[in-house]
Amino acid sequence: MKTRTYRNPTGVSRYTGLLLISPFIIGALLLIVYPFVSSFITGLTDGSSFVGFENYKHILSDGQIRSSAAVTLKYALILVPLKLIVSLAAALVLNMELRGIGIFRTAFYIPSILGANLAVIIMWQYLFTSDGLVNQLLETVGLSPVSWYGDPNAALFMIVLLRLWEFGSTMIIFLAALRDIPRELYEAARVDGCGRARAFFSITLPQLKNVIFINLVLQTIAAMQEFNAPYILTGGGPLGKTRTIGMYIYEEMFTYGDAGMANALSWLLFMLIALIVFIMYRVTGTLRRDG
């Protein structure tokens, strides 16, 4: 084993840093390692006695859980691309140097800071009732009202719209990244006779690829564990078509009191998310490296 030299200012022990991060070490054990190990082990029980891999086997074969997983994936597949596109487009527009642009940035950002606030979700609930504001507006422009709580697709889309409305946090990250792109790149491109669209595809997008990846991963993780919105807005209905895995875990634990099942499902959800992130990392690997 080779010995390592520690690059620290003179008089600083190599344990000083360790001491400084000690809250994190405790935190990592308590909040990351422990839940990960504990949920797997509790998942091997029925809450009190050991049952082996019964819960895990059941989860993989149960039709209801499978449909809940399908709902969650569908939700993520609709929401995440939409949110990334909308927030990138908004960031591009708001990156322009215009008088008073700050006001617009704030206006677009405010919904995301209220984000998951219960008051906002309650507001959404009233906006989408059968004779609520949204349906009134639809009728005003001559469209037929939608049964937001009765039609499975509409119900899921109502939740997507709520989260889409909160695109400000992703937009802010894109804005910061856009500001970091060197101006000279665009000037050089213009000298070479490069148009706006071309500049977007050959300069802006390649320069943003790391940030796009970060946003993609963060938004996917958030979407895969969606709980608040379906729990309050639809209660998982109609016909369980908006019951996300997050809701399913909660119900197993607190409605049916099945701690083993809830923990096994939690653990598998973590594995599923880790797998998705890993695949994203691999698939985008070559894209993120060159250019």
Partner: peptide, 26 residues
């Protein structure tokens, strides 16, 4: 600089990816 710095940094990133719905039951 300190022993196991890379490992702890890795754990920090892992923690960011850990969904809260997973940790809430345990």
């Amino acid at each position: 600089d300190f022993p196991l710095k890379k490992l702890f940094y890795g754990l920090l990133i892992c923690g960011m990816l850990m969904p809260s719905i997973v940790t809430v039951m345990p």
